[in-house]
């Protein structure tokens, strides 16, 4: 997990350098994913870090929540953060595959004190799907199958649809 996070952070760091070299290719994208690895939905930023002919490698960082307040009604949001590394093949119509982790910070009940308690967990996932995105940027559409191994224990079939913009 630490290795995965390190690679991901380095990827995000290196992207700023990479963009300066090729301004004509739109490397950033933001999109809203309905369902997907965020659970019910998430807002995501993605950055292309490598392009070799029709193959593009990118990294994703997202965020979402279930509840902004805990059961005492105090502001204490659940946080769900999808991170992943993805590969796309194609020009406008792309096959997309990604490997990622979701880091969840969910406020639940402490079984001893019955007070709100934030629990942190990691859940690996895989995404396979179709992605519409032109090299010059603009509208993005994604549809994918994204199974999740929740708590590294339970395999769950899942999927998502995304709409966004590349720039």
């Amino acid at each position: 997990m630490k290795l995965f996070l390190t690679i991901l952070l380095l990827s995000f760091y290196s992207i700023s350098k990479a963009q300066e070299d090729s301004l004509s290719i739109k490397k950033n994208s933001i999109y809203i994913e309905i369902l997907g690895v965020g659970g019910y939905g998430s807002v995501n930023f993605e950055r292309e870090i490598l392009k070799i002919k029709k193959i593009k490698i990118g990294t994703r960082l997202g965020i979402t929540t279930y509840n902004l307040t805990d059961f005492t009604t105090k502001f204490n949001p659940d946080l769900i953060i999808p991170i992943s590394i993805n590969a796309q093949y194609g020009n406008k119509h792309n096959l997309e595959i990604s490997l990622g982790q979701v880091i969840s910070f969910i406020v639940e009940t402490n079984p001893n004190t019955y007070t709100p308690e934030r629990t942190t967990n990691i859940h690996p996932n895989l995404t396979v799907g179709y992605r519409y995105q032109k090299t010059k940027g603009g509208f993005i559409f994604r549809i994918n199958y994204s199974p999740i191994i929740e708590f590294y224990q339970d395999y769950k079939h899942w999927g998502g649809i995304s709409f966004g913009y590349a720039f």
Partner: peptide
Amino acid sequence: TDPLYTSYSIISLDQFFSN
């Protein structure tokens, strides 16, 4: 088992009313 990433427990009435 729902929603994803959560693990809310089943509660007994005794636990609930006690708290």
